[in-house]
C-alpha cells in the first residue's frame, strides 16, 4: 500500500525562522487535518528557533492527528530545536508531578 505524503515547509508557511506560538502549532494541525495525505512531513529547514510552547501544543494535538489516521515526521530539524522537542516529550511524562517554586516566603511591599 502506498502512503501519500505531503510536505509542509514551516519557514515558508510562517515566513519566519521562529516558531514561537501555540497558535502556530494549531495552524499546522489545521493544515494536517484538511489535507488528504496520510503522512505529513514537517520540514524544519531554515527554522532557527522553535519554542517549548509550540512543541507542547503540537504534541498535545498528536492524538487528534492519530484519530485522523495520519502520521507526522520531522525533517531537517536543527539539533537545538530537537532538544526542545525532546524536552516536551520528556516533560509530558512528568506532567502530573510538575512543581512550582514556592512563593510562600515572599514578602509584600506597597509602593
Amino acid at each position: 500500500m502506498i502512503t501519500s505524503n505531503k510536505t509542509i515547509n514551516l519557514a515558508e508557511l510562517f515566513n519566519s525562522s521562529s516558531l514561537i506560538t501555540r497558535q502556530a502549532a494549531q495552524e499546522v494541525f489545521n493544515i494536517i487535518s484538511e489535507t488528504p495525505e496520510e503522512m505529513i512531513i514537517l520540514n524544519f529547514s531554515k527554522i532557527k528557533f522553535a519554542s517549548r510552547s509550540f512543541f507542547d501544543e503540537l504534541n498535545s494535538l498528536k492524538s487528534k492527528i492519530s484519530l485522523l489516521s495520519k502520521k507526522t515526521k520531522f525533517i531537517n530539524i536543527d539539533e537545538n530545536i530537537e532538544k526542545v522537542f525532546q524536552l516536551v516529550i520528556n516533560t509530558e511524562k512528568l506532567k502530573s508531578s510538575l512543581s512550582y517554586p514556592s512563593i510562600a516566603n515572599a514578602k509584600t511591599v506597597t509602593i
Binding site: 515566513n15 519566519s16 525562522s17 521562529s18 514561537i20 497558535q23 502556530a24 532557527k48 528557533f49
Partner: peptide, 17 residues
C-alpha cells in the same frame, strides 16, 4: 486574527534575536 498575530510576533522574534 490570531494567525496574523502569530506571524507578526514570529517575525519580530527572528529579527530581534
Amino acid at each position: 486574527e490570531k494567525e496574523n498575530i502569530t506571524r507578526q510576533l514570529g517575525a519580530l522574534h527572528t529579527k530581534y534575536l
